[in-house]
């Protein structure tokens, strides 16, 4: 499975498909940090929110790089549909971690956040990592749901991706009647900017993990039935 993960990451980078989402990530980060300094944790909260569609799009691109017949060859070579599916998700998660690393480092390089003591800086980065990871799981799951192996057409893939990303934000707004229906992106941003209790953070983590698990299950189920 690791070999297939490596092969897919290699194809993602070697074909140049990794460039577009990276540029998109740098563009949104430039807009985010171009207006002056902010508290690191608050900035990371917003950064995780805007990174969500980029990470989902990147996942779709990564999974779509491989020709359909090659995906089938990989499945036969591995001897397991489950491991072939998992290898794609793992590759997308690794690529997502690279974008998150950029998102965590860039604000310090461009002076977009207020500096503090080393302990405060480390704490901010850890919190930032946490809120970005809360976005990564749902983003990979949404991107996977929009990939060609599931949607079968570019138009349907784009529709799933855009609709999913918009709904994740709109249904997560304060006052939404069904905030539990979407990953807690907006709630996480609010928690990072306004502060919250450890219990609230735990509940958001549980919601993100549950949403990721359910969406990943749906993706896996659809992949099993649509080859």
């Amino acid at each position: 499975m690791i070999a297939l993960t490596r092969m897919r990451l290699h194809a993602f980078v070697r074909t140049g498909r990794a460039v577009a989402p990276l540029i998109a990530a740098l563009a949104v980060l430039s807009i985010l940090y171009g207006g002056g300094q902010a508290e690191a944790v608050e900035a990371y909260g917003v950064s995780a929110l805007v990174a969500f569609p980029v990470l989902a799009w990147q996942t779709k691109i990564l999974l779509d790089v491989e020709p359909d017949v090659q995906r089938r060859l990989a499945r036969v070579a591995l001897g397991s549909a489950r491991r072939e599916i998992a290898a794609g998700l793992l590759a997308a998660a690794v690529a997502g971690l690279a974008v998150i690393a950029v998102a965590l480092v860039v604000p310090w390089l461009v002076g977009g956040v207020k500096t503090g003591t080393a302990t405060e800086t480390a704490g901010s980065i850890l919190t930032g990592l946490g809120v970005h990871l809360l976005a990564l799981g749902p983003a990979v799951a949404l991107g996977a749901l929009s990939c060609r192996a599931v949607t079968r057409s570019a138009g349907m893939g784009a529709a799933v991706l855009v609709t999913g990303a918009v709904l994740a934000i709109v249904l997560g707004l304060q006052g939404s009647p069904v905030p539990w229906l979407v990953p807690p992106l907006m709630a996480t941003t609010r928690l990072a900017t306004s502060g919250g209790t450890p219990l609230a953070a735990t509940l958001l983590t549980a919601q993100a993990l549950t949403w990721t698990a359910l969406t990943t299950w749906l993706y896996s189920h659809l992949r099993h039935t649509r080859t």
Partner: peptide, 28 residues
């Protein structure tokens, strides 16, 4: 261990002949 040769090999992908074959051997 199943070997499957499709009707048309998908050549539209990254890598050289040996690079691809070594990667597929690792997958196996």
């Amino acid at each position: 261990v199943v070997g499957w040769v499709p009707e048309r090999f998908p050549a539209d992908q990254a890598g050289t002949v040996t690079g691809y074959l070594r990667a597929m051997a690792a997958v196996r």
